[in-house]
Computed example of a mutant assay.
Amino acid sequence: MSPLLDGLRILVLEDEFLIAMDVEQLCRDHGAREVVIARDLAEINGREVATQFDAAIVDLMLGGTSTLEFAAGLRKTGVPFVFASGYSDAEEIRTSFPGVRLVTKPYSGEDLVEALAVAYGRGSPG
Results as ranks from 00 to 15, higher is better:
residue 1 M to I: 09
residue 3 P to K: 11
residue 5 L to R: 02
residue 5 L to Y: 11
residue 6 D to S: 02
residue 9 R to G: 04
residue 9 R to L: 10
residue 10 I to R: 00
residue 12 V to C: 09
residue 16 E to W: 03
residue 17 F to R: 15
residue 19 I to G: 02
residue 20 A to R: 13
residue 21 M to H: 10
residue 21 M to G: 06
residue 22 D to I: 08
residue 22 D to N: 15
residue 23 V to P: 02
residue 25 Q to L: 08
residue 25 Q to H: 15
residue 26 L to T: 13
residue 26 L to Y: 11
residue 27 C to E: 05
residue 30 H to T: 09
residue 31 G to P: 04
residue 32 A to S: 07
residue 35 V to Y: 05
residue 35 V to M: 00
residue 36 V to A: 05
residue 40 D to Q: 15
residue 43 E to Q: 08
residue 43 E to M: 12
residue 44 I to V: 15
residue 46 G to F: 08
residue 49 V to M: 05
residue 50 A to K: 04
residue 50 A to D: 02
residue 51 T to P: 05
residue 52 Q to L: 15
residue 55 A to Q: 01
residue 57 I to A: 09
residue 58 V to C: 08
residue 60 L to Q: 00
residue 60 L to K: 04
residue 60 L to G: 07
residue 62 L to T: 06
residue 62 L to R: 00
residue 63 G to D: 14
residue 64 G to F: 09
residue 65 T to K: 13
residue 65 T to I: 12
residue 66 S to G: 15
residue 68 L to S: 07
residue 69 E to H: 09
residue 70 F to V: 13
residue 73 G to H: 01
residue 74 L to G: 03
residue 74 L to A: 09
residue 74 L to T: 01
residue 75 R to K: 14
residue 76 K to L: 13
residue 76 K to G: 11
residue 77 T to V: 15
residue 77 T to I: 12
residue 78 G to L: 04
residue 78 G to Q: 07
residue 79 V to R: 00
residue 80 P to G: 07
residue 80 P to Q: 03
residue 81 F to K: 02
residue 81 F to V: 00
residue 83 F to P: 00
residue 85 S to I: 12
residue 85 S to N: 08
residue 85 S to A: 14
residue 86 G to M: 10
residue 86 G to Y: 11
residue 86 G to K: 05
residue 88 S to L: 14
residue 88 S to K: 06
residue 89 D to P: 00
residue 89 D to Q: 13
residue 93 I to G: 02
residue 93 I to D: 03
residue 95 T to P: 02
residue 96 S to E: 13
residue 100 V to N: 08
residue 101 R to S: 07
residue 101 R to W: 03
residue 101 R to D: 12
residue 102 L to P: 00
residue 102 L to S: 01
residue 103 V to Q: 07
residue 103 V to R: 04
residue 108 S to G: 13
residue 110 E to A: 14
residue 111 D to R: 05
residue 111 D to W: 03
residue 116 L to H: 01
residue 117 A to F: 02
residue 119 A to N: 04
residue 122 R to P: 15
residue 124 S to Q: 10
residue 125 P to H: 00
residue 125 P to R: 07
